[in-house]
Computed example of a mutant assay.
Amino acid sequence: MPLLLLDLENTLLDRAGPFRAWGERFLAGVGAPPTDIDWLLSIDADGLTDRWDVADAVRQRYGLRMPSIDLVEELHEGVLDAVRLDPLVACALRVADWAGWTPVVVSNGGVRQQEAMIRRSGLDGFVADWVISEEVGVSKPNPRIFAVAARRGRLPLRGAWVVGDGPEADIGGAAAVGLPSVWLHRGRSWGDSRFAPTRTADGVLAAVAAVLGA
């Protein structure tokens, strides 16, 4: 039963859509022009920017008096309220399980938000376990986080595959630990010459099919 190590945000669960929806509502509420959503998305950097830094940038741009902690909480809850588990992702995880694979989430981020996304979406019913960087003190692409995931899954890393949308964190992490990988391209082209994914797919269902086909 080999391991299937999967990224969370924008892989198993869509974050980009919920963040954009929250951003558009928030900007309308503070009287900002709709076009400012492009600025907010660039500041967020697809979730790679620390939440506190996003909050500080928003407060400064719009002269808001609300404390950063309140804005971070609003962002957190706004995104969580819109996160849903895609039935196709649930189907893909079931197929992987039936085929003898053990799905384990490996995610960079804060424990509170990441676990809330996993549990509130119902994803916890489709994976064997999860590893979150803040909890274990090491982040992708560091090979140690994948070793922790293997211990959580009670299986060796040998034979595992990594699936994710992050070129550096997921595909670079897989390369660092010597594992094959599937990159979810999300409409992008691969541009890193240091390493490359074993397969490329447009979604989790196609990624699982690629792994089973290999």
Rank of each mutant, 00 (worst) to 15 (best):
D44Y: 08
D44F: 03
D44C: 05
A45P: 00
D46A: 15
D46K: 10
D46C: 07
G47V: 02
T49Q: 11
T49H: 12
T49Y: 08
T49W: 03
D50Q: 13
D50W: 02
D50H: 15
D50M: 10
R51T: 08
R51Y: 13
W52A: 10
W52T: 10
W52Q: 13
W52I: 07
W52D: 14
D53N: 11
D53Y: 04
V54N: 09
V54R: 09
V54T: 13
V54A: 02
A55P: 06
A55Q: 05
D56Y: 01
D56H: 11
D56P: 00
D56S: 13
D56T: 07
D56E: 11
A57W: 04
A57R: 01
A57L: 03
A57F: 00
A57C: 03
A57T: 01
A57M: 04
V58K: 03
V58A: 00
R59T: 00
R59N: 06
R59S: 11
Q60R: 14
Q60G: 08
Q60C: 05
R61K: 08
R61W: 02
G63Y: 05
G63F: 06
L64W: 01
L64A: 08
R65D: 15
R65Q: 13
R65I: 08
R65L: 13
M66F: 06
P67M: 07
S68T: 13
S68F: 02
S68L: 12
S68G: 14
I69G: 07
I69S: 15
D70A: 15
L71T: 08
L71Y: 02
L71V: 06
V72F: 04
V72A: 12
V72E: 12
V72D: 10
E73Y: 11
E73N: 13
E73C: 10
E73W: 09
E73Q: 14
E74R: 13
E74W: 01
E74H: 11
E74M: 11
L75W: 13
L75S: 12
L75F: 13
L75I: 15
L75H: 11
L75P: 07
H76M: 06
H76E: 10
H76T: 09
E77R: 12
E77W: 09
E77G: 05
E77I: 00
G78E: 01
G78K: 02
G78I: 01
G78W: 04
G78M: 00
G78D: 06
